[in-house]
Design a protein around this nucleic acid. Structure first.
Length: 276
DNA sequence: ATGGTAGTCGCACTA
């Protein structure tokens, strides 16, 4: 069977629930991980998504800030994971039922990390690094289960490659692209041999962005973007990412301009062929 | 070195 996965930092799910509905109708993902929902569980807009057949919804909410939610057409079982040292609502881990078996879908909103790229003087950057270390430990400890079918998605707030930012040189000291956080993210990725799906389908020499700042005028025209959002799969799913025919992986760049008030992030989708 | 915009619990914080 094939399964289509998606991730999107929505920057307030209540403000943009119509855009989520449109995305679900147009792209028909089976599972969507949302980040920065910016609301508590009790005010999450369940109804419009359930009406479309997304009956399985798991929310980690927080008043005003952060928050993540996973909405699915396939049954979800919540996993009891803890990644945030400060206890923020920044992740939802679930098992997704796919026929007789299941895959793990880990939906992350990694801390942005503030402005100064020094953990000794910037608590937010220290928190970002701690969060990454907690993730590394969790997944490295589980790597003995090599047949585990794991997917990690979300806003990682790190653009690892040179061409994941509009100017490698100008962003080397800017949080999201500093060598320290990039090396920590790469260590985490390699600790479980995760595949970075977006880069699998795009040459390293080509620019790839999923986020464009609200600040400054016409960020799309100057195309000063960064690739902060990711879909990773574990070794057991490596062969599943090449779904024949239509592109298996898409970054939905038009969503940055398709509404008057868009999120600053665009969604991305990955099709997995679970028979492969 | 600064400021730009957006969203929420606006009179401040996070991004």
């Amino acid at each position: 069977m094939k399964i289509k996965l998606a991730t999107w930092n929505i920057n307030s799910v209540r403000l943009r629930q119509d855009q989520v509905v449109r995305f679900l109708k147009e792209q028909q993902p089976d599972v969507l991980g949302l980040q920065e929902i910016k609301c508590l569980e009790e005010v999450f807009p369940y109804a419009p998504f359930r009406e479309l057949g997304y009956e399985h919804i798991e929310v980690a909410g927080q008043k005003g800030y952060h928050g993540a939610a996973t909405i699915s057409r396939l049954p979800l079982t919540r996993m009891d994971t803890k990644f945030c040292p400060l206890g923020h609502a920044r992740h939802v881990s679930t098992k997704v039922k796919t026929g007789d078996t299941s895959i793990e879908f880990h939906n992350f909103y990694i801390p942005a990390g503030g402005d100064v790229a020094d953990p000794k003087i910037n608590d937010k950057f220290a928190h970002k690094l701690d969060f990454l270390e907690t993730m590394r430990r969790y997944f490295a400890d589980r790597f003995t289960q090599k047949d585990g079918r794991l997917v990690l998605v979300g806003d990682f707030n790190i653009a690892p490659h040179e061409n994941d930012v509009w100017s490698h040189k100008q962003l080397l000291k800017v949080v999201s692209h500093t060598p320290l956080e990039v090396s920590i993210l790469e260590t985490l990725r390699k600790s479980h041999e995760f595949t970075d799906c977006s880069r699998l389908f795009t040459d390293d020499a080509d620019k790839l962005f999923s986020w464009w700042s609200y600040r400054g005028r016409d960020p799309m025209k100057s195309n000063r973007g960064r690739r902060l959002d990711h879909i990773w799969v574990s070794p057991a799913l490596h062969s599943a990412v090449h779904a024949g025919g239509k592109p298996a992986h898409e970054i939905h760049v038009p969503c940055r301009t398709w509404h008057e008030k868009p999120s600053d992030h665009v969604p991305m989708t990955q099709v997995l062929d679970l028979r492969a």
